[in-house]
Design a protein around this nucleic acid. Structure first.
Lengths: 132, 132
DNA sequence: CACGAAGCTTACGTTAACGTAAACTAGACC
DNA sequence: GGTCTAGTTTACGTTAACGTAAGCTTCGTG
């Protein structure tokens, strides 16, 4: 079996706390194997955690992320389930693309605002530290 | 004065509840004018709300958004304050750009996963409703 | 004038996503 | 054998972002 990480190594690696990892496990987003009592995180769990963190940064709820995570263990599922999983993925992809559009226009807007702001600053070159 | 919207018009327009708008006001993200008791939302508040909703969809906290919103009333601020506001905006822009990168690679990853998933489905054209 | 619709304030409730503390265990090292 | 370190379970606490309900005002209309 491949290399595994302990919980503290995981925390180090991804900047999360043990509590967070156990919480995700409780919510069935992760399912590390056990060495006695201790959790060991395989490559699969690492991949899943990466997705979780991505998802979070884009404002998805853990529950939404969980559904998508099924794409990560395309094991011996039934066809029906496989198709359903695929559909979830497609929908998520559409959402991501929409977010991309929105993000791009947000960036454009902000750039414009900053330009205006820059002008404003430059047209006030008088160093009046106007104590109000 | 320009056109203003009532609270229910705002809710209709942006798909939020009155409670949400009052909450944002309480947190000083919005500050509608008053007609007696009633709130009236000007163009400025509308612009701000748009930003708030954008920000939320990208996973920013209200408090982070609030800072950025100062870019929206570049009124008669002191230069120091103006520069600070500008800096906040620049930082936010960087964050957005980073998110854009992450988003793009997430999209790529997901597309790949979906391709794999599609193959898997196609290589199983046997309609075995394998009851486990 | 009654009253219904729209809005208001005040305040307690709820959910997601963890934080934090207490008390236990199991292997490592002196 | 003691104790240090890393890890565990259990359970209550916390924060953000609203939901929800109660009771009051104001305005237009029959």
């Amino acid at each position: 079996m491949g290399k595994t990480l302990t919980i503290s190594q995981m925390c180090e690696e991804f900047g999360v706390t043990p509590r967070t990892l156990r919480f995700y496990e409780d919510k069935e987003l992760l399912s590390p194997i056990r060495d006695g009592q201790k959790r060991l995180y395989t490559k699969r769990e690492i991949g899943r955690l990466k997705w979780i963190l991505h998802g979070k940064r884009f404002g998805f709820a853990l529950e939404e992320i969980r559904e998508l995570l099924e794409l990560y263990y395309l094991g011996d599922q039934q066809e029906t389930q496989l198709r359903r999983t695929y559909e979830v993925g497609v929908k998520h992809l559409e959402t991501l693309r929409a977010k991309k559009e929105e993000l791009n226009s947000s960036i454009d807007d902000l750039e414009e605002l900053l330009a205006t702001c820059r002008e404003l600053i430059e047209t006030l070159p008088n160093k009046q530290t106007a104590a109000e």
